[in-house]
Design a protein around this nucleic acid. Structure first.
Lengths: 197, 197
DNA sequence: TCCGTAGACTAGCGCTCGCTAGCCTTATGT
DNA sequence: ACATAAGGCTAGCGAGCGCTAGTCTACGGA
C-alpha cells in the first residue's frame, strides 16, 4: 500500500519545499524537474511522492505560504498604528523585510503564480488583493484625514508598482536596511501626494 | 534538400511571429508548443521549420523586436526636446503608447526574457539598459538644471518600476489616453522630486 | 518479539516535446 | 515547356517529462 499521501507537515517535507523553492527561483518552475529536486535531496524522483501529491502541489504550497507571510507580517507591523502615514511606512518596511528575509520564495511568488491551476490561482489573487487593500486603505485614509491631494488610485498604483518591482532593484547587501529604503521611498511618494508639505 | 532555413523576412514568417506572440502572451513560452502555433496557422508542426530555425529563435525575434521598438519610439519622441521635464513626459507617453499598441508582444518581452539562452539574454539586457538610461539621464539633468532634490537613483527607480509594472494596471480602454495617464503619473512623481513646487 | 509505519528503492508507463528527413504540389520566370 | 524553389505534407526519432506500482529496510512502540 502506498502511504496515504504526503500531506502532513514533516521535517523532510519542509526540506523538500525549501529545496524546491531555491531551485524554482533559480531556473523557473517548468525547468525545475522533479528529478532535479530529488537529486538535491539525495533521493530518487519516485521517492518524492511519499511527501507530496504532485508537482503543482509543491508550487501552490510555496506561493500560498509567501502570500500568507506577506499578510501576517503586514498585520503585525500595523497593529496599533493609526496614523495613515505611519501605517504606510510600516507596510513598506514590512514588505522590504519580506524580500530581504525570503528572497527566493518571493521570486517564486511573483514569477510563477500564473502557472497554477485556475482554482489555486484564484485563491492567490484573493490573498494578494487583501494585501494590497491594506495599502489602498491607508492612502484613502490619508486623503480624508490629511492633506493628500492626488488621485488615491494613482498614488497606490505608484507605491505598489515600486514595491512589486522591488525584487528587481532591492539588494539586501546590508548597506541600506529595509527601514532606510522604505523611508526614502515614502519621502518621495508622500511628497508627491501632499498638496502642501 | 531542405530549404536553406527560414531566416528571411517573408509575410508568412511575420504571420507566424504574430501568432506565436499572441499564444505565448496568453499561456507562456513553455506551454506554447510548436504544435499549437502550427494549429493556429492551419499547418502541421513540421512545416513551421521552413520559416524558423528553432523555437527559441521565435522568442528571441519577438523580444528583440519589442526592445528595439521601445528604443526607436523613445528616440523619436524626445528628439528636439531639451527640457528634462518635457523629455520625461515624452518618454512616459511613448512607453504607455507602446503598451497600448503592442500589449501581447510587450507582455512576452517582460515575462519571458529569462527563458532565452545566455547570449541572447545579454543582448536583451543591453538594450533595456540603454532604454532605461534615457530616463535616468533625464532625471539627472533635472537635478542639475532644475530644482530636483531627491536622490536621482531613487526617483528613476520609482518611475521605472511604475512603468515596468504598467502592463498589470494600464488598461487601454479609451477612457484615459497614454498622454493623460503619463501626465497624471508625472505630476505625482515630479512633485515628489521637486523640493519646492 | 512482533508489527506498523516512514521513507527509501527499482522499474517503467504513457505521453508530449522540439525537431528532422524526405516527399509532393503549386506558382513563377525564362 | 520545363526547371526551380517555396511551402506544404507524413512519419517518426530520441529524449525527457510527471507520476505510479510494488517492494524492501530500519526503527520505535505495544
Amino acid at each position: 500500500m502506498r502511504s496515504e499521501r504526503g500531506q502532513r507537515d514533516t521535517p523532510r517535507r519542509r526540506d523538500l519545499i525549501e529545496i524546491a523553492t531555491d531551485l524554482i527561483s533559480e531556473i523557473g518552475y517548468e525547468q525545475a524537474t522533479v528529478r532535479m529536486i530529488a537529486d538535491r535531496m539525495g533521493i530518487k524522483s519516485g521517492s518524492l511522492y511519499s511527501h507530496i501529491s504532485s508537482k503543482e502541489d509543491v508550487l501552490y504550497k510555496i506561493i500560498l505560504d509567501v502570500a500568507g507571510d506577506f499578510l501576517e507580517r503586514a498585520d503585525r507591523a500595523t497593529e496599533g498604528v493609526h496614523d495613515p502615514e505611519e501605517r504606510l511606512r510600516a507596510l513598506c518596511r514590512s514588505h522590504l523585510e519580506m524580500i530581504r528575509d525570503r528572497r527566493p520564495a518571493v521570486r517564486v511568488y511573483f514569477d510563477e503564480w500564473r502557472k497554477l491551476g485556475d482554482a489555486n490561482q484564484a485563491e492567490v489573487i484573493r490573498l494578494r488583493e487583501r494585501y494590497e487593500d491594506g495599502f489602498r486603505l491607508a492612502i484613502a485614509d490619508g486623503i480624508e484625514t490629511k492633506a493628500f491631494d492626488a488621485d488615491p488610485q494613482l498614488g497606490a498604483r505608484v507605491l505598489l508598482s515600486t514595491l512589486n518591482w522591488a525584487p528587481s532593484w532591492y539588494v539586501a547587501d546590508g548597506k541600506l536596511s529595509p527601514r532606510e529604503v522604505a523611508d526614502q521611498l515614502l519621502e518621495v511618494i508622500l511628497r508627491g501626494l501632499y498638496t502642501r508639505g
